[in-house]
């Protein structure tokens, strides 16, 4: 085990993936608690598909991937939130529309330019080789911003998650904080999706929250547990992915799934 770890960290690309991954999983887990409880987890999924489209287009035009996809996904976050707040349109269906359309645009762009190659596969299912040095820098900066914002707005996020109507009624600008939540989610997804893959990044948001909710009963407890679980699962997933040469994203999701099952059993046992 120790040998594997030593070998693992002798590669710079793994160290990069590790650093970015820890930050991204932390951000995703923290935001995820609120997103899951607000029934916004579909937005995360939709955003990752929009991110895929943006990345594909950016690559086709030889533009810097993060600099293009961050603003595009932010705009998408704004739109998706408006859609899901608007009761006249079926929110979940509209999100599915947006996400499959972005996926289609991305795939068309790729096949017209570079053709279907390993890049596409990497976008879809993630690769730890994807991070360049400058990407690492941007990712870490973005993630730190997300973490700081989350801590500063923690109480507000709790209030709008628990009872948005009460928050609005008592004079809190709930819509503004919803938007903040969507923007932070967009940032986290863009930064994390190349490693995790467009298909799997939303699991980073959903799994830790759902897993923690099996056992913990306070919001703060769920937040802390999600953060810890997310980082631990990421680490184990990365090591397994390295040891057995399987895609990182899939390996991390699998570890998360096992944890979820474990916590569900603990939850059931605690109740009885």
């Amino acid at each position: 085990m120790f040998d594997v770890l030593q070998e693992l960290f002798s590669y710079t690309f793994i160290v990069r993936a590790f650093v970015v991954g820890i930050f991204v999983s932390l951000c995703a887990a923290l935001l995820g608690v609120s997103l899951v409880l607000k029934r916004y987890s579909m937005i995360g999924d939709g955003l990752s598909h929009v991110g895929f489209g943006a990345l594909a287009v950016a690559t086709a035009f030889n533009a810097a991937p993060l600099q293009v996809s961050i603003p595009v996904v932010m705009v998408a976050a704004f739109l998706l939130l408006r859609i899901s707040e608007n009761t006249k349109i079926k929110g979940d269906a509209a999100i599915a529309l947006v996400s499959s359309s972005s996926l289609a645009i991305g795939i068309i762009t790729i096949s017209l330019t570079t053709g279907m190659n390993t890049d596409v596969c990497n976008y879809m299912f993630g690769s730890i080789l994807a991070m360049s040095k400058s990407d690492v820098k941007i990712s870490v900066i973005v993630a730190v911003i997300v973490l700081i914002m989350f801590v500063l707005f923690y109480n507000k996020i709790f209030a709008i998650t628990f009872d948005q109507n009460f928050a609005t009624a008592t004079g809190i600008k709930a819509k503004r904080y919803n938007m903040l939540l969507a923007f932070l989610t967009a940032l986290t997804i863009v930064v994390g999706m190349r490693m995790m893959g467009a298909m799997l990044i939303s699991s980073l948001i959903i799994f830790p929250a759902l897993t923690s909710m099996r056992v913990f009963k306070s919001f703060f407890g769920v937040i802390i547990s999600s953060a810890v679980l997310s980082v631990v699962c990421y680490f184990i997933g990365l090591v397994i992915s390295f040891a057995y040469s399987i895609p990182t994203g899939a390996s991390i999701v699998a570890v998360n799934l096992v944890t979820f099952i474990l916590f569900s059993i603990i939850g059931i046992m605690k109740r009885n």
Binding site: N155, F158, F162, F166, K217
Partner: peptide, 12 residues
Amino acid sequence: FPASVYEVVLSG
């Protein structure tokens, strides 16, 4: 919703 009574009251 996972929230303790204290957290809920405090949010007021």
